[in-house]
Design a protein around this nucleic acid. Structure first.
Length: 392
DNA sequence: GTCATTTGACCTAA
DNA sequence: TTAGGTCAAATGAC
């Protein structure tokens, strides 16, 4: 733990204070549209949600600090401390180690230690899976979830016809974003991809995209946050609001969220897809139709101006709780993981404007009853799988 | 020249 | 022991 964590916490709390203030004086913040349109209540609800999200995030940071404190003062040593400063050792090529006079054994030991750390982090971060259906089943087609990713590996998986791609956030180095994903094309359906996400985005692209898109906010991923437990509990009572939504354009795209307990949740939005793909496919029962409510999604229009008809694909979310117990639990015994989450968030907050410092929670209004703090992964917006954003 | 992807090797968890 | 996950040099694209 360091001063940065405290500053992050203070920053979040300041956001909460600001949001609370907005609750007190909505007329100043809400434009006339809200009031003339009878949406004042929605405004209040939206601000309240933001406030709850901000407070939840603050709690998460505070508990991470607490956990780090419980783990003793050794946090500064060890592997986690050695890697937090540079962000990614890929910046320092292997030859650098060799030329620095280390023995091969030392280098191997160091690498082993580093690798052990990455494994620990991998195990600690929240993990969830989604199914992406692309309109075009060609081999070139890949799902675009709206975030910018950099591919760092590919591997043939036993029993799978197609190799699995490994991606990490483009801003891993620049902003310490810990998010990674694995993309596996389905054997049965070439148009379906199983995407496993791990770690929440703490990078700036989330806010930028949400602001630019002006559509449904990206649902936050499962957070390494104690409040998530409450949210997961909440989802058991969740009902998707479908009233008043536009009927599905032909063919109807669906965005489906699956939890591991086989509960299905159909989320009313979908990310854009790569330009140039063909028309969307007919609905696939195997994907979203199963236990899903067959939510009919309104068309998503890419901020980049892609034709709405080209932006459809279906998704199925599957939240994979870590730590057992039927809900997501961040292991508090591993303070380094928590610290890393905090550190990543801290690095992110350094470049995020205060209005967006809700850190994945600070989204505009959802569709009525859908709480933005549900442990859904971030999926929306526009970006290429192959990151075009440059590191700051 | 810079940056992203490819790919073989290495390491860990199961 | 094996499969999965990651690293990083090599390579290619812009």
């Amino acid at each position: 733990m360091d001063g940065g964590d405290i500053h992050l916490l203070l920053s979040i709390l300041a956001d909460g204070e600001e949001q609370a203030r907005q609750l007190g004086e909505p007329a100043a913040a809400a434009d006339d549209e809200y009031h003339s349109g009878g949406r004042g209540e929605e405004y209040y609800r939206g601000v309240a949600r933001q406030l709850r999200g901000t407070l939840a995030r603050a709690m998460g940071v505070a508990r991470a600090i607490e956990a780090a404190a419980f783990a003793g003062g050794g946090g500064g040593g060890g592997a986690s401390g050695s890697r937090g400063t540079t962000g990614d050792r890929s910046d320092s090529p292997r030859s650098a180690d060799e030329s620095s006079g280390r023995t091969a054994r030392d280098a191997a030991v160091a690498q082993q230690e580093r690798h052990h750390d990455t494994i620990k982090r991998r195990k600690g971060l929240p993990r969830w899976t989604e199914k992406f259906r692309v309109p075009d089943a060609s081999l070139e087609a890949t799902p675009d979830d709206g975030f910018s990713w950099r591919k760092y590996g590919q591997k043939d998986i036993l029993g799978a016809k197609f190799p699995r791609g490994y991606y990490r956030c483009t801003y891993r180095n620049a902003q310490g974003c810990p998010a990674t994903k694995q993309v596996q094309r389905s054997d049965a359906d070439l148009a379906v991809f199983d995407v496993t996400y791990q770690g929440a985005h703490t990078c700036h692209q989330k806010q930028r995209r949400a602001a630019a898109a002006g559509d449904q906010p990206p649902p936050p991923p499962p957070q390494a946050d104690p409040s998530v437990e409450l949210l997961v509990n909440f989802r058991h009572g969740l009902k998707v609001e479908t009233n008043g939504l536009a009927p599905p354009p032909p063919p109807p795209p669906t965005t489906t969220t699956n939890f591991h307990d086989d509960q299905h949740f159909c989320f009313p939005s979908m990310p854009p897809f790569h330009a140039g793909v063909g028309p969307p496919p007919p609905p696939d029962d195997a994907l979203g139709g199963g236990g899903c409510n067959n939510f009919s999604s309104p068309p998503f229009v890419s901020p980049a101006g892609s034709a709405a008809g080209e932006n459809y694909f279906s998704m199925e979310h599957s939240y994979e709780p870590r730590g057992g117990g039927g809900h997501f639990v961040m292991s508090r015994g591993d303070s380094s993981e928590l610290h890393e989450v905090v550190s990543a968030a801290a690095s992110s907050s350094a470049v995020v404007d205060p209005a967006a410092a809700g850190g994945g929670f600070d989204y505009p209004l959802y569709h009525g009853e859908v709480d933005p703090h549900l442990p859904f992964p971030p999926l929306f917006g526009h970006a290429s799988m192959y990151g075009q954003y440059r590191d700051a």
